[in-house]
Design a protein around this nucleic acid. Structure first.
Lengths: 333, 333
DNA sequence: ACGTATGCCGCAAACGTTTGTGTATTGCGT
DNA sequence: ACGCAATACACAAACGTTTGCGGCATACGT
């Protein structure tokens, strides 16, 4: 197991009495066995020997030669976040289907780390980057663009970089319309992390609808403090501490919603009788706790993001995409 | 931005009037500026030019030469699973600290996909593999081991491969002891996926304690059907459908527990008055919904797993590790 | 019968590193 | 003054591919 000679093109070639170039061309021909690079008989011999010896091309050598790695990097705030994990799965799936490979890194939504990870990936010679952690103003993205690095954004938009997102504004409107239709008249917003398009689009969509209905959301009830369960808990506590209660609260993320749910219930409130709660994304857990929410096509965002990046790498100029969300009403609101 | 010449060792070397070998040695010397491969003055010139030109070594060329990629592959059932995502984060963190890079792939807990992904990663010339999806009997792992592929298991054990896990048996005992101490006498088990060590160790730990107390868990109340919220919901429904109710149910995974929680509450049962519910892992959401659970050191498992793999790659023979779990009691039980 | 096309394949140069070996220069001890 | 050991570097081969170019047959058209 230690003195094994690696099976290379050269090995196959000499064993077949051919030149490595011929073997290489045949093995790489997308036409496969129908390759016109060699006589049918020769092609057959090549493939069968390759199979027999278990040949596997050395991607480092190939990448060195071609200056492509067939690998794309993706940067997410955090893989622990179900939403981003799902998006990454979509990316990875589409990548695999297209002969690419996706690698991932966490930025913790921090600009310095984002830059560090991106540069690290570029150092590994990836062919392009997908950002799932873009902030509204992000000079680094512009820098990368002018450096000529192919990049696309998923989940969040920023500037005029190519992006694949959920139509978050529409999603916010959906939730507001639902709440109004079910008779609620006062609202609080657990609005996620500031300076992200997901946060601002969802909240302005929500607020715009209320505006039209002549309802204003008090400023202290618009709480920006992150997307996770802990953020939802803290926001809910702040709402409770405000003395009075809204008839409904819209958390722009399911996990924040679930965190809020727990705090409200613990405070003896009944949901949705005392306060309705709505989330965003429709993660499986939302179904598990009967949370009313807006479904966003996370997996599909990942897939489309990869496709966009691929056409970008190929020299094309893909359009940004806004996938449409869907209201899903459950018991919590 | 298109006609840029890539900055290589050769470029630096000719520009400095040196040979690439010298530049390479200096730049790679762990001693950094203190390198003894060149005169102090020369070393300084090399580093400053490298910095000025923004030199970044081409890992493909290096890997081609050294036959190492400084990359490890990790295979998980699913990145969407918070537990595995956290373990991967631990792996990635430790990898980065040691100059390595971790790439990940989903197997969906399916042996065929597991093999396919592993072979794909090996084709990319990774230096070693970490499996987070091992089943109890896994011939493929043995095959890899005899092939000489450095591998370690995390989260789940299998055979006598090196593994870093939580002491699941102890964890199961903790939960049983807690339930007994709080007066429950009849139990159901939402036991996760069959043929995984996490499932079997946690349940046997649980059952052993009950045995000693002279309590037996009815067979139809030991339900094997996966680790996620949907599995928990279905299991809870089956329990409800059995006609009578246990005083407590232990789900070997928080998400399954949360799913069960939702079903019980929806059925009008009050938790923990009518039925206590315990989970496993102590994910943030457990705190969010006040779930009693057993904390497992997920992040640390990842870190230790990477270290084990690293010593394996370095030719050492690391010991398997069983990290100790911790009971965390909340309102649900 | 002769030019040309086509099928089949080989040659060789890169891609950017790492690393074993070699060599000129300097400094030192004696 | 001599040998000897460091010091400070250079040379060159190798890692396994990809790909432009070229060459030799055979077949084909006229």
């Amino acid at each position: 197991m230690h003195g094994t000679v690696p099976v290379t093109l050269k090995l196959l070639a000499t064993e077949l009495g051919l030149n490595v170039s011929t073997v290489s061309r045949v093995l790489n021909d997308p036409a496969g066995v129908e390759s016109k690079w060699a006589a049918p008989q020769t092609t057959e011999r090549i493939f069968s020997l390759a199979r027999e010896r278990g040949y596997s091309r050395n991607p480092h050598a190939a990448s060195l030669r071609t200056a492509r790695s067939d690998t794309v990097g993706v940067i997410v705030p955090r893989l622990q976040d179900f939403v981003l994990a799902t998006i990454y799965e979509g990316i990875d799936e589409a990548a695999a289907e297209n002969g690419l490979f996706a690698v991932v890194a966490n930025s913790l939504d921090d600009s310095t780390k984002q830059r560090a990870k991106a540069e690290m990936l570029l150092g590994r010679r990836i062919d392009g980057l997908i950002f799932g952690d873009a902030h509204l103003r992000e000079p680094y993205l512009d820098e990368l663009a002018t450096r000529g690095v192919p990049l696309v954004l998923v989940s969040r938009t920023s500037g005029d970089h190519v992006s694949v997102t959920c139509d978050d504004y529409a999603g916010g409107r959906l939730m507001a319309e639902h709440f109004l239709a079910t008779g609620r008249r006062s609202f609080a917003l657990i609005a996620g992390s500031e300076a992200t398009s997901t946060s601002s689009d969802r909240t302005t969509g929500f607020i715009d609808v209320l505006d039209d209905a002549g309802i204003v959301v008090p400023e202290e009830w618009v709480i920006h403090n992150g997307f996770d369960a802990a953020a939802g808990q803290e926001a809910a506590s702040r709402i409770l501490a405000s003395g009075r209660m809204p008839e409904a609260v819209f958390a722009v993320n399911d996990f924040a919603a679930i965190g809020a749910l727990g705090v409200f219930r613990e405070a003896g409130l009944s949901v949705p009788a005392d306060v309705a709660v709505g989330g965003f994304n429709d993660t499986p857990l939302a179904a598990g706790v009967n949370l009313t929410t807006v479904r966003s096509p996370m997996h599909e965002m990942g897939r489309q993001g990869l496709h966009a990046l691929q056409t970008l790498i190929g020299g094309g100029s893909p359009e940004s995409l806004r996938l449409t969300p869907e209201m899903v009403v459950r018991l919590s609101g």
